[in-house]
Design a protein around this nucleic acid. Sequence first.
DNA 1: ATAAGTAATGGTATCGGTATCATATTTGTT
DNA 2: AACAAATATGATACCGATACCATTACTTAT
Lengths: 340, 340
Amino acid sequence: MPRSLDERWSTMKEVANLAGVSKITVSRVLRSPKLVSPGTREKVEKAINQLGYVPEAAAGALSSGQSQIVAANISTLSGSIFLPTINRLSSVLSQHGIQLILSNSEYSEETEFRQLSALIAQRPLGLVLSNAFNSPKRRSMLSRIGCKVIEIWDLPDQPIDYAVGFSNFDAGYSMTQFLFDQCAYKKIAFLGTKQGFDRRSEMRFQGYKNFQIKYKNQIRAVDLNASGKGSIYDGTIGLNQILEKWPDIDAIFCSGDVLAIGAVCEAKRKGLRVPQDIAISGFGDIEFSNGYGIDLTTIKVRGEEIGAHVASIIIGDREEDFIENKAIDVGYDIVRRSTA
Amino acid sequence: MPRSLDERWSTMKEVANLAGVSKITVSRVLRSPKLVSPGTREKVEKAINQLGYVPEAAAGALSSGQSQIVAANISTLSGSIFLPTINRLSSVLSQHGIQLILSNSEYSEETEFRQLSALIAQRPLGLVLSNAFNSPKRRSMLSRIGCKVIEIWDLPDQPIDYAVGFSNFDAGYSMTQFLFDQCAYKKIAFLGTKQGFDRRSEMRFQGYKNFQIKYKNQIRAVDLNASGKGSIYDGTIGLNQILEKWPDIDAIFCSGDVLAIGAVCEAKRKGLRVPQDIAISGFGDIEFSNGYGIDLTTIKVRGEEIGAHVASIIIGDREEDFIENKAIDVGYDIVRRSTA
DNA sequence: ATAAGTAATGGTATCGGTATCATATTTGTT
DNA sequence: AACAAATATGATACCGATACCATTACTTAT
């Protein structure tokens, strides 16, 4: 039975005394029960239950030089794009008794550096980072950390350690190709926000551009620098800008779903039929892209899969997969719904 | 400068040697610099930078009996309802050098118990719980933990320790009253999911019921037990069930925004005008309630505020507020948009 | 029968900080 | 000038686990 507020938690020593064994035997019961004879194990387990003993992680970490902690620093929590990844990661780790420390740099490099120090102080088993575009300073800091560093959501050319994600360039290229070949839209525009802090949208634009150049199509792109948020409202603005500049386009590839949804709403408001008059596609497959009468054609990112891979890397149950290449490309899916 | 992979991180002792002082002085420079003379402090700081020293949290925690960790166990991450709270909490704590461990019970009591043990092992400064409805077993487990236990998002009758949230009962009552008095809808139905694992919806229903009884209005409620998810699809089903049972109703109060959005879409699909033919309100003010051509009338929960209060409690910068009552009611806002 | 091996357990040092108390120096008071 | 108080620093023990090596009791192989 656990103790009241002002008392201390019982220690391994106390459990050992109660069970009539030594500390180290208690430790073995908890960490490698196979080394302990069934009889002894039972005595110890009984003592543990009786005292409500919960081992102190700090002591174990200090002694073994190994914490049971994984730290994740992600650039944003609000947009909820990382949620499926975090969710899966947290759930798998939890099954292995590993805790997840989450910190959120809110797209600020300075904040990230400060937080990184705090995370290093925990001597985590692994460090998960969503901000895959590394400055040299950041790279050199991270390469010396001494735990598994896993960059997620994007595939940098040279992973610091491991990377799990997909290529935004490919995604941009594929969607353009899909619109052009599969759906037979021939005049495709790109609508995006160039956010200084998130170059992924830019990579998708490069994919679009590359396809267009390859097939000698005209590049029509509107860059919504001003807002930089990719909001629904931006989508409405963007649609109008594009129609003004190129009245003859038949499809718009938006760099994000929220933009796309804004564009769809605005198109409908103007009396345009989607996709007959204008087709619109997005990126991300956020929770609300499907339903609400929107039913967006988009690219689905395999967020959960990323989380599962990250967990595997940390737990170390599939080292063999990484002998050649420490980067895993989980790919993406083009989901055709009714807007394109 | 930090070391390469196979080396150890430098220790406080090494910093002390390099600076020509004792360990404890280094510790003071980091924890209470005011106790150290400026000259010494400078020497030590120089040594810290030179070695790239980052203190080991586990050792500090073990020695002081105080980790710099707060643990949060929330019932779900997917719905993103807790995100603003977690986000704010994490950001304030981070400024104080406190890390947030997040775990997710996925609405399973068994999982929660297992995770709670793992969290206790960290000897956290505070334990934040979203699952405010306590079984006696859970209560007795939690009351002995020995750190600040903070229940969030709801206000239990008897907080274990602290509570920050709002009354779902009041919210249900207020919205019904608002629809009845302010908006002058006289035949109001309630559409909800009774999820065995989340009794908050049920509390809102009780609020609705109480108001209706008080004003001798007929209680019209449809309970979508089957799905239990409160999905968009459930909303469409629910709307039809209600219209079938009570064709003359003029407003529906949905227990959640997603349900409400489903109901709005279905109403429009059937050619009903919202709110003229039927008014619909939700609960939660999720990110997509506003926009998408939905523009839902709903109850906005002050999630960020909850996070801020929780952080204050943990940091302990406002003990005075809690002398009388350890529960903080942050309230909620009724947001009138175009669906009611 | 003896050497070698395995299983089960324990003793002791140690991880890297902080608490506590002690000491030395400086400053302030009357 | 003498003593108290404040400031600055250090010595030592200790937090609660695990690592490492040692020990004992039994097996198994030759």
